[in-house]
Amino acid sequence: MLIRYTPGRTGLAEGLRRAARAVLYLPTACRLARDPGYPWLNAGAVRWLDRHLAPAMVGFEWGAGRSTLFFAARVARLTTIEHKEKWRRRVAHLLARRGVGNVTLRFVPPSDDPGRPGLRPALWRELGYEPHKPEFAAYADVILDIAEASLDFVCIDGRARVACSLNSLPLLRPGGFLVLDNSEWEKYAPIFTAAAGWPRLDFENGVWRTTILRRPGGANG
């Protein structure tokens, strides 16, 4: 069960909810403080990824940061998309300082670029999905250069998560997996509709949820 609070709301009940969330979040805060390469994902998901990532894997992620270091240390190649230039520079500096050479870090800011709607998967039409953040169309569509069934994993912890997910699902190999952080939000429901029938793992800590969806097929599918 996740303990929620409403931003801006005050009162005793809301204060108690915030205090409970702070206590539940404390183990994560300690892990983040100890290790700059510990990803800001649910701890159960991090343990699962640590067991299932392999040196030959190729991955893609939206949202640069701690997860970039985590994935880069465990796989062959990683492409990371970031929409904030200041944060991209910070992560680029960190990768260079650590001598990480297997990450392609790309900056794709919000803009009026319409993206490439003609290349989007049929899932968009099947769901009748219309993007809620058109300024991130090019950001979400940047993955469409990649061939179908060629990625081992995709991690989505950035903006326009539904659009990013719909573009990503056909690009995963059988047995490949999509990592969706903050998956408890109702607005991400179209992702689970699109991946109906995919094995699903939910990892919660009382504050937020990280979900891993695995494409059927493959050795462990």
Rank of each mutant, 00 (worst) to 15 (best):
T6F: 04
P7M: 11
G8K: 12
G8C: 08
R9H: 11
G11M: 11
A13T: 15
G15Y: 02
R18H: 07
A20Q: 13
R21L: 10
L26P: 09
L26Y: 11
T28V: 13
A29T: 14
A29C: 11
A29Y: 05
R31H: 13
R34A: 15
R34C: 08
G37L: 04
G44P: 07
V46A: 04
D50M: 03
H52F: 09
L53W: 00
A54N: 06
M57V: 00
G65I: 04
L69R: 08
A72C: 08
A72Y: 05
A73N: 08
V75R: 00
A76D: 12
R77W: 08
R77E: 11
W87M: 07
L95I: 09
R97I: 01
R98M: 08
V100H: 07
V103N: 03
T104G: 06
P110W: 03
D112T: 13
G115S: 07
G115K: 04
R116E: 14
R120H: 10
L123N: 13
R125G: 14
E126P: 05
Y129C: 02
P131K: 00
K133L: 13
P134M: 06
Y139T: 11
A140V: 05
D141Y: 03
D141R: 10
V142R: 04
I143T: 10
I143F: 02
I143Q: 02
I146G: 00
A147H: 14
E148D: 15
S150F: 12
L151T: 04
D152V: 01
D157P: 08
R161K: 13
R161M: 05
R161P: 08
C164T: 03
C164I: 01
L166Q: 01
N167W: 00
S168F: 06
S168E: 01
S168L: 09
P170A: 12
R173N: 02
G175I: 02
V179I: 15
N182L: 03
N182V: 08
A189W: 12
F192K: 04
F192V: 04
G197P: 07
R200Q: 14
D202Q: 13
V207W: 05
T210F: 00
A219I: 05
G221R: 10
